[in-house]
Amino acid sequence: MSGWEIFQVWLVAFLTLALFSFMYKDNPIYRIAEHIFAGLTAGYQVGLIWDTIILQQVWVPMTSGQWWVVIPGILGMLMFTRFSSKYSWVSRSSLAFVMGATAGIFLISELHGRVLPQIQDTMVSLSGEGGFGATMLSIIIVIGVISTLIYFYFSKEHKGALGVTARVGIWFIMISFGAHFGYTVMGRVSLLIGRMQFLIEDWIGSFI
C-alpha cells in the first residue's frame, strides 16, 4: 500500500469512527465529520448539477438545434427571481408547473403501476380449484386488500362492522410492516458488517 493509499484509509477510518461517536453523544469530533460531510456534498452537488443538468440537458441540446429546451431553461432561470423581494413572485410559476405536473403524472403512473394491477390481481377465484392452500391464500388476499382499503376510509367513524373490518385491515398492515422491518434490518446489518470489515481488514490490517 502506497503512502497516499494509507492516508486515504486512515482518513476514512477517522471519519467513520467520528460519525460512530455520535452513538455516545454529540461531540466536537462528530461535528468536524458532520461539517466536512455537508460541505463536501454541497461542493459536489454544484459540480454535478452544472455538468449533468446545465451542460448536458440544457446547453448541449440547445446549441445542437433543440431550441425547445429553452422553455424549461427559462422556467429554471425564473427561480433566480427569488433573490429579489420585488419580483420573487415570478418564481411561483416554475414551482406551480413542477407541482402540477407531478400530481398529473403521478395520477396516471400510480394508476397503471399500482391501482389497476392491484385490483386485477385481487380478483381471484375462491372456488377451491387449486386446492385448499391456494384457496386459503386467495381468501387472505381478498380480505387483506378490502379490509386495508376500509382502514383508509375517512368518511365514516370506524365503528360497528366498519370498525371490525378496519381492525382486520390494521392487522394486515402491521404484519406487512413486521416483514418490512425484518427485511430492512437485515439490510442495515449487512451495511454495518461492511463498515466493520473496512475498519478491521483495511484499517487495522494496514498497521498490524
Binding site: L19, F22, D26, R31, E34, F37, A38, T41, A42, Y44
Partner: peptide, 15 residues
C-alpha cells in the same frame, strides 16, 4: 437548505 446528499443531510439534522 442543509445538504444535497442523503446521509450528510441526516448527519447535519441529527447534530
Amino acid at each position: 437548505y442543509v445538504a444535497g446528499e442523503q446521509f450528510s443531510f441526516t448527519a447535519t439534522v441529527n447534530g
